[in-house]
Simulated scan of single mutants.
Amino acid sequence: MHRIGFVVFDGFQSMSFAALSVFESANMMLEQPFYEMHFISEHGGLVRSSTGMVVDSKPFGRIPFDTVIVGGGVSILESAPSGVLSFITKASKKSRRLASICTGTFVLGEAGVLDGKRATTHWAQARGFQARFPGVRMEEDRIFLIDGNIWTSAGMTAGIDLALAMAEKDLGEAIARSIAQQLVVYHRRAGGQSQHSALLELSPKSDRIQKTLAYAKENLHTTLSVEQLAEVANLSPRQFSRTFRVETGQSPAKAVENLRLEAAKLLMEQTRHSVDEIAQETGFLDRRRMREAFLRGFGQPPQTIRRNARVQA
């Protein structure tokens, strides 16, 4: 039995609970209670979230936990209760895994358990975190990070990716993939993936353009000409180009290049595929064209990005 303690405090954000759905789904899939989940707090009893929802919690110290997870909340950005900090310090030494979701990283930082370690948090709070905890290697453009027994994740939904990674480690990739399908989420965003998605930055308004971008992302290995994309949108090439620019602020060609760059960078960082293989897979056709796109987009060639990723790892 893997016992999970989910730390709550006055003003915690209930969106953090989304991560617990991963463990609940694992139990249902296995048809046995592999994970046992508890809400825990400094004094136990009822604890109120930022939305007014109340949960019943057990006090710290009663039972040991395999995994301890601290959720996010605005209320702990400045300072967490002393009892919470003391518990986190002990958990970092006794629990197999200690994790934070979103701004829960601030609790870990204040408890001193992140000193000398790599961590991430919500991108909007990353600079403030780094200024407050200079001894922590903040990597603000990551979905989640693992350093030793410490796991940290970005914004609230990134907690699902973190929990899926835990389930994968405990139960294997096949089970984790099935859990993701059950939850209707992507299995699974890699920890090193950027918090900033090219698709999110484009923010298309209409279903037609959204559908076209989704098609482009799934078919990066093809040419993706304006004519091809316009056919997916059921528009003439001229109408499509005009509508696309109005909705996204970019030309179709520029948007496709950004999608190719995002995919190629991820493959450079997380696989051993050759530069030529990645160029083919992401539609750049050859290493020269991909190198030129990397220099435009990142100011560095692909090999430098791969080398930096390996050094960080």
Rank of each mutant, 00 (worst) to 15 (best):
F87Q: 01
V84P: 00
V84N: 06
A80G: 08
L85I: 00
S92N: 13
L98G: 15
S86C: 00
V74N: 14
I69G: 01
L85Q: 04
V74P: 06
G73Q: 04
T89L: 05
L77K: 03
K93Q: 15
S79F: 02
G72Q: 04
A99N: 13
S79C: 07
V70A: 08
P81L: 07
S82T: 09
I69H: 04
G72Y: 08
G73S: 10
S75M: 08
G72H: 03
S92D: 15
L77M: 08
A91Y: 14
T89Q: 15
G71M: 13
K90D: 12
G83N: 04
S79Q: 09
K93M: 14
L98K: 14
A99V: 14
K94N: 15
F87G: 01
V74R: 11
V84T: 12
S95L: 07
L85T: 03
A99C: 13
V84G: 12
G72T: 00
A80Q: 07
G72A: 02
I88H: 02
G72C: 00
T89Y: 06
S86V: 05
E78F: 12
L77D: 07
A80K: 06
L85A: 00
S95Q: 11
K90V: 04
V70S: 12
S92L: 14
I76Q: 04
I88E: 12
K90W: 11
A80T: 08
K94Y: 10
G73K: 01
I76R: 06
R97Q: 11
S92A: 15
R97F: 07
R97D: 01
A80Y: 03
F87L: 06
L98D: 10
K94T: 15
I76W: 10
S82A: 12
V70H: 00
G73I: 01
V84Y: 03
K94W: 12
G71Q: 07
I76H: 06
L85S: 03
R97E: 07
S92E: 05
K94R: 14
K94Q: 15
S86M: 11
P81A: 04
R97M: 07
S92V: 14
E78A: 13
R96V: 14
I69E: 05
E78H: 11
R96L: 06
R97I: 13
P81R: 01
I69F: 09
V68N: 04
V70F: 05
R96Y: 13
K93N: 13
V68S: 08
S82C: 09
V84K: 05
S75C: 03
G72N: 04
T89V: 09
G72S: 03
G73C: 11
E78P: 02
T89N: 12
K93E: 13
S82G: 12
I88C: 00
K93T: 13
G71L: 07
S95H: 09
S79I: 03
R96M: 08
G83T: 03
R97P: 11
S95I: 10
V84D: 02
S86D: 05
S95C: 15
V70E: 07
I69T: 01
T89D: 10
I76P: 02
F87N: 06
L85E: 00
G73E: 01
L85C: 00
F87H: 12
A91S: 09
G83S: 05
A80N: 00
G71S: 10
P81H: 02
T89I: 09
R97S: 03
A80V: 03
G71V: 11
